[in-house]
Amino acid sequence: MARIYRVAVVGCGHRGREHAAGIQAESRCQIVALSDVNEQAAESLNRDLGLNAKVYRDHHDMLKQEAPDIVVTSLWTPLHLPVFRDSAQAGVKAVISEKPMAPTWGECLEIANIAQETNCQLTFCHQRRFAKGNQLARKLISEGVFGEIQRMELYSPPNLLDCGTHTIDQALSFVDETPVKWVLGAVDASEPLNWFGVSAEGMAAGTLVFENGIRAHIQVGGPDMDIWGGVRVHGSKGFFAVDWDGKCLEARVYDDPAWQLPVLAEGVDNHMVGVVGDAVDALEAGIEPELSYKKALRASEVIFAFYESVRRHARVALPLQGVTDNPFVTMLENHRF
């Protein structure tokens, strides 16, 4: 008989609901607790999904009373580190967290250290890796359909930390997780944003170069974007473009004008089912999950290196050294724009 994992959801807003639906679709999981400082949000989620879970206002009480196997956190970015720390110290086996990792590079590194030291499996919700179109794109790249990948164009709505992380992660998945070698960036801070408790730019643009020589231009927010969010990949034998969710926007194979992208099976493309299922599979097999914090850390490093490039007015090589803050926020607070 398969083990049933006791799951607690911390943060019961819009994304918390999507996570909960993904958990409900996983037969090996049962939601036993909901926690939110807004108790009405938790009660509403409990009622709407018929969960019959126990509701808490304080996640500390929930961890102590329920001792869940898995915790799903759907919280504002500054809360990711403290709630993960509390969960790992309470003996939780796995945490599925919303992206991005944290507001600063130092906090990202601290999260990674906690995960390594406690052996608590940690994933971040770059859920678009499970989109059928993105999976197909990775398959075609690995089969050499588009030849050797030479360059990419990355697009995302604002801002780099909260939204751009999806596009950077998407690009990393297309180049088989090859690390970025250096970053050169610029931002438009004329009208700063505040997303989930973190200040951010309205537009960013720059260049990334991967260790294998692939170059990428990135634009996050602003006018005149070819793609609202997604990636265009240019190879020696062809090119393709997909949106965030893997929907094909265009594709060509140069020596075969009749070539067409394979037709995907119809049906709902529920990324959250993949997020939860992969986390449970990895937990049971003792392997690294697809959405491992190690991959999120790599994407986060690119983002903070990008901001550091703005601060230094210079190209920044990776691995990122001498940075623990969020350079954009520091510059904004010090009236450097």
Rank of each mutant, 00 (worst) to 15 (best):
M1R: 10
R3H: 14
I4D: 13
I4E: 15
V7A: 03
G11F: 04
R17S: 07
R17D: 07
A21R: 13
S27H: 08
R28A: 09
I31Y: 05
V37P: 15
E43W: 13
G50Q: 08
L63A: 08
V71M: 09
L81E: 11
R85G: 10
D86M: 09
V92F: 00
E98R: 03
W105Q: 03
E110Y: 09
E110T: 11
A115S: 02
A115E: 00
T118R: 04
Q121G: 05
H126M: 13
K132Q: 13
L136D: 06
R138P: 06
L140S: 11
E143Q: 14
M152R: 01
G164S: 11
T167N: 05
D169H: 01
S173E: 13
V187Q: 04
P192G: 05
S199L: 13
A204K: 03
G206K: 00
A216M: 10
I227Y: 10
W228G: 13
V231H: 09
H234V: 11
K237C: 05
F239P: 02
F239M: 12
F240R: 04
G246T: 09
D256Y: 10
A258Q: 13
P262Y: 04
M272Y: 15
V273F: 08
V273S: 10
G274D: 07
V280A: 02
D281L: 05
A285T: 05
P289S: 01
S292N: 09
S292P: 07
K295W: 05
A296Q: 02
R298S: 06
S300G: 03
F304N: 03
S309P: 07
H313D: 14
R315H: 08
P319E: 02
L320M: 02
Q321R: 11
F337N: 14
